[in-house]
């Protein structure tokens, strides 16, 4: 076994919340399932649409019109019957975020809007669990891992929401960024390697280039300013 018995047990004991079962949520959840993460909680409030199928690889043609949560739950359980999958048909908002993340050891940001991402960021800060961020558009993407108290939070890095995407996402971009997020989760749970902590990875698929930029805590951050003062 690649991770040894101990590593596999660490994965088995973990609970990861995946916010969104769309372009990013599909590859993230499938790979965390086959990795053997013991409990996956995945939430989405949408139905499968034909236009999703170029990138949302949890779904097939015959799933069109069905609730994403229901299909995702079935598919992930098929992929790995030995893990627990809790697929929740819910909107992630200020009323539900706390209960959705209650048991999580980490949160994967697979959303497509920043106001809701900021709610996940707040939940991660409050619970002091990591937030694995990803964002995509066309052939472009970004990813970083937020460790509350140790790295800048999502709002330090991206303080104002970018406009909602009007460009379609290439399926391969969702796969690329989603697998970076899943790799981060894997490393975090196994305490191995160097996380994308304090670094924002930028992927330009059209140029075939990866860049990374260092990110810093914003002393005036709306979400975390003063919250972790004095901590490393």
């Amino acid at each position: 076994m690649l991770f040894g018995e101990e590593g596999q047990e660490q994965l088995q004991d973990a609970t990861i919340f995946i916010a969104g079962a769309g372009g990013l949520g599909s590859p993230v959840s499938i790979y965390l399932a086959v990795l053997g993460v013991g409990t996956l909680i995945i939430a989405d409030n949408d139905r499968v649409d034909q236009t999703n199928l170029n990138r949302q690889i949890l779904y097939r043609d015959q799933d069109i019109g069905r609730r994403k949560a229901a299909v995702a739950g079935e598919r992930l359980q098929e992929v790995n019957p030995d893990i627990m999958v809790k697929a929740v048909d819910a909107t992630i908002d200020q009323h539900t975020v706390s209960s959705l993340t209650r048991d999580a050891d980490g949160i994967v940001d697979a959303l497509d809007d920043f106001p809701t991402r900021y709610l996940l960021n707040k939940a991660a800060l409050e619970k002091e669990i990591p937030l694995f961020h990803g964002g995509i558009s066309g052939f472009f993407g970004q990813a970083t891992t937020i460790l509350p108290g140790k790295t800048p939070c999502l709002r330090c890095i991206i303080p104002r929401p970018p406009p909602a995407e009007v460009f379609p996402v290439a399926g391969v971009t969702a796969g690329f960024i989603g697998l970076i997020q899943a790799t981060e989760v894997c490393k975090y749970l196994l305490c191995r390697g160097d996380l994308l902590a304090g670094r924002l990875l930028l992927w330009d698929g059209m140029q075939g280039r990866i860049e990374e930029i260092p990110v810093e805590t914003d002393p005036d951050c709306e979400a975390c300013a003063g919250k972790y003062k004095g901590r490393s």
Binding site: G134, I136, F140, Q142, P163, A164, F167
Partner: peptide
């Protein structure tokens, strides 16, 4: 000088 737009899709 680098100018970068974060992207919002998922």
């Amino acid at each position: 000088i680098a100018v970068f737009p974060p992207v919002a899709g998922g």
